[in-house]
Computed example of a mutant assay.
Amino acid sequence: MTHSLYINAEAVEVSVEKVLASQTFARSEKLRSFLRYVVQKEQSGAAQALKGYSIGVDVFGRPEEFDPSSDPLVRVQAGKLRKLLERYYDTEGLDDPIRISIPTGGYVPQYKMNRQECPPPAVLRQLIIDPQPIEVFAQKPLRMRLFAYAGLTALNLALAAFNLNALATTPPAPPAPLLSGSPPPSTQIPRVVIDNTGLDSNLAKKLEDTIREAGNREATIDIMSVSDDLASAENMDSRLRFRIAVKPGAIAGSLEMSLVHDATGDIIYQASYDLYDSDATTRLETIALDLASSTLPVSGEIYRFAAQQGISSDLMQCMSLTELYNNTNARLAFINAKACQRKLVPTGRPGNIYSNLRMLRDASRDALKRSNA
């Protein structure tokens, strides 16, 4: 269950039952059955069985000769379910601490902490469990320190109100020996190598181009081909190297995608997709964008995995703090984002911070070059 890295099974069960009991889903018995089915399958470890055929037969009562490639029933109902979930979280479920979604291109549900209510676990640990490294608390006058402490207390109370302890899993164990050692270089960000050697050349190029474009927009990940990675491997901390492996699925016309951490071999994201459209290239672009949105941002699986293993660079941690400020506009978040940015870019922006992650990344790297000159 690679999508529930920080959310335990009990919390998922409570969340889905709340959705199913809502007014939004009250008149949609089939969609309630659809949602309950995919969540139960995923939670039981059978996510790979969530295909158009099994859903058509088990949920919608189609006969054994049901052919999802010619009968669009499941795809149509999945579209309705996605829209109904969006409507629920825009209205009744606006304050729910967990959001359930069914990404386009597949039927495996994903669960994410509501970013409006709960910062990512890595940021929570920095802000609440271990705030001492944030130098601003030691340098500011007493009045500012009291304000910061009050902010932390308020944040703790808010999290308690949402019963975060019941929603989050036990904090991860210390990093394995393979991932221990000195921290990564301060301005290094994760590298993702795209391994699409098993695909048709046209589809392989489309996949790589789409993921690379998404990575460039995020500015949080370096996207590389296998050949580019080999040419610059000596400059990369191997603990921050990941691989997107794409291969034809077991069922004809399907694809399997995995995001793998190279140093440990851990699969941190996995999904199967059907290439059912007549225009496979367009379909692949949609799939690639779905994969990118789940893995590349600072709230995605790569940054979460790095935080869990204790291998985030200074820049990665600062990007997380900056994104927290961008999302909340909270005073305490601003203080911590500014403090970490001043470490990376001592000259910085007088009286302000970089809110754009690309500008923060580039300024940090430029500052490092100047200091090493």
Rank of each mutant, 00 (worst) to 15 (best):
S201T: 13
M224Q: 14
R191V: 06
A214G: 02
V192C: 06
A204D: 05
E208Q: 11
A231S: 15
S225C: 09
V192M: 10
P190K: 10
R212L: 04
N216I: 01
N202M: 04
D209H: 11
R212Y: 02
T187M: 03
S201C: 01
D222W: 11
K206T: 11
D200F: 02
G198K: 14
S232E: 00
P190G: 08
P185N: 06
S201I: 10
I194C: 11
D209P: 09
E218R: 15
R217Q: 13
V226M: 11
S232Q: 11
T197K: 14
I221S: 10
K205S: 04
D222F: 13
Q188R: 11
K205C: 00
P190N: 06
R191H: 02
E213I: 04
T210Q: 08
G215S: 11
L203G: 04
S201K: 14
L207I: 06
Q188A: 14
I211Y: 03
D228R: 13
P185V: 05
D228Y: 01
I189Q: 03
R217V: 09
D229C: 10
D200W: 02
I223Y: 10
I194Q: 08
R212M: 05
E213R: 15
L230G: 03
I223V: 14
L199W: 03
D222R: 15
G198D: 00
V226Y: 04
K206R: 14
L203N: 04
D222S: 15
A231H: 10
N202D: 02
M224T: 13
S186L: 12
T210S: 09
K205E: 00
V226G: 04
L203S: 07
L230F: 01
D229Q: 12
M224D: 04
T197V: 08
I189C: 01
A219T: 03
D222K: 15
D229P: 02
M224P: 08
T197D: 05
S186M: 12
N216T: 03
D228N: 12
V193K: 10
S227D: 12
K205H: 00
N196D: 11
I189H: 00
D228E: 15
D229H: 13
A233P: 03
P190C: 07
N196I: 02
D222P: 03
T220F: 01
A231F: 04
D229W: 10
L203K: 12
N196L: 01
Q188N: 06
A219F: 01
G215E: 05
L207E: 00
K205Y: 00
A204L: 07
E218V: 09
Q188K: 08
S232M: 06
K206D: 00
I194S: 08
E208M: 09
V193E: 02
E213N: 13
S201R: 14
L199C: 07
D209N: 15
L203E: 01
D228G: 10
D200M: 06
D209W: 06
